[in-house]
């Protein structure tokens, strides 16, 4: 039982680390984006300041809401943390062994509860965000699973630890390049980055995630923001572990990925909502080629 206790402690350390680092990673992306746009930009620690500010603010909620609305941020964060617990990051954590399907489905809990809460305030903004989120997810999910298949082909398993990219056999092969590009496209869609969603605007024509959370404020909003950041970091982690083409330490991979997101976000426009399907289909075709080429 000592062993189990040790592992639980390791697990909690992993969760805390991921939670604490997540705002920093999004801060780095934002700073790089600012540089690319010839701005000075906010400090890379701005994410923490924002969270702290929201944490202290009072919360106002709509009179029409039910308990789902109050519970949703917590369940969202919890589901993301469970997904984080499933991720093997080099700590000797064997308590919850990671399976990629479990990981993806745990993130689906967050999507389920957040889209539900978007309907709870009884406004058109929420429904708009929720229905768009479900549309995007219907496009991302199949392509995400194709990516899983392409990564799982060689090892023949779906445990995340077993699927880690093998740099001896997969060093700059065609299939690894294809699936790397494709998963990067998925990552942008899943994290709500620019070609698919633009979280910085507050114009209802373009919003997806911002729409869904429009009615939240104060501490509840802080929790949602934190959960989104951690989720983004988790997807970046999956990218780094399973698809990143060069063998580097994990932290450096994460930073490079964050930088790549900043570059892509600066060089592209947000595409029209109904063009996202062609974008995702492209990623899917790349993955099919990667699967066949392996």
């Amino acid at each position: 039982m000592v062993d189990l206790g040790q592992q639980v402690i390791f697990l909690l350390i992993q969760l805390m680390l991921l939670t604490l680092v997540a705002p920093l990673v999004s801060g780095i992306t934002k700073k790089l984006k600012a540089y690319m746009q010839n701005r000075l930009g906010a400090s890379i620690f701005q994410g923490y300041y924002d969270l702290a500010k929201l944490w202290q603010k009072p919360t106002v909620i709509t009179a029409y809401t039910s308990n789902i609305f109050l519970a949703a941020p917590f369940i969202y964060l919890l589901s993301v943390l469970l997904a984080a617990a499933v991720l093997p990051l080099g700590f000797s954590v064997n308590v919850v062994l990671g399976d990629i399907f479990v990981f993806i489905s745990l993130l689906a809990i967050g999507r389920f509860i957040m889209t539900l809460s978007s309907l709870d305030a009884g406004t058109s903004f929420g429904g708009m965000g929720g229905s768009r989120e479900l549309y995007i997810s219907a496009l991302v999910e199949p392509v995400m699973l194709l990516a899983v298949l392409s990564a799982a082909l060689q090892p023949g398993t779906t445990s995340i630890a077993g699927m880690h990219i093998n740099y001896t056999t997969h060093y700059f092969t065609i299939s690894s390049a294809l699936s790397c590009c494709a998963f990067f496209a998925i990552l942008l869609a899943e994290n709500g980055c620019i070609p698919v969603d633009n979280p910085d605007t507050h114009l209802e024509l373009t919003m997806i995630h911002e729409c869904m959370t429009l009615e939240y404020s104060g501490r509840l909003l802080a929790i949602i923001h934190l959960a989104s950041m951690v989720k983004g970091l988790l997807i970046i982690n999956i990218f780094s572990l399973l698809f990143f083409p060069v063998n580097l330490p994990l932290l450096i991979k994460i930073i490079i990925t964050a930088a790549a997101i900043a570059v892509v976000e600066s060089l592209n426009n947000k595409m029209r909502l109904f063009k996202v399907r062609f974008y995702m289909v492209t990623a899917g075709v790349l993955l099919l080629l990667a699967i066949v080429a392996q």
Partner: peptide, 29 residues
């Protein structure tokens, strides 16, 4: 691959269908 894509779409649609089922019936006004 056919199986993964179809079941992926199925899972996403099912999630959407039941968000809609519950959300429209029980939530809002």
């Amino acid at each position: 691959a056919f199986g993964f894509v179809s079941l992926g779409l199925t899972a996403a649609f099912a999630l959407g269908a039941f968000v809609r089922f519950y959300g429209i019936i029980f939530l809002g006004r």
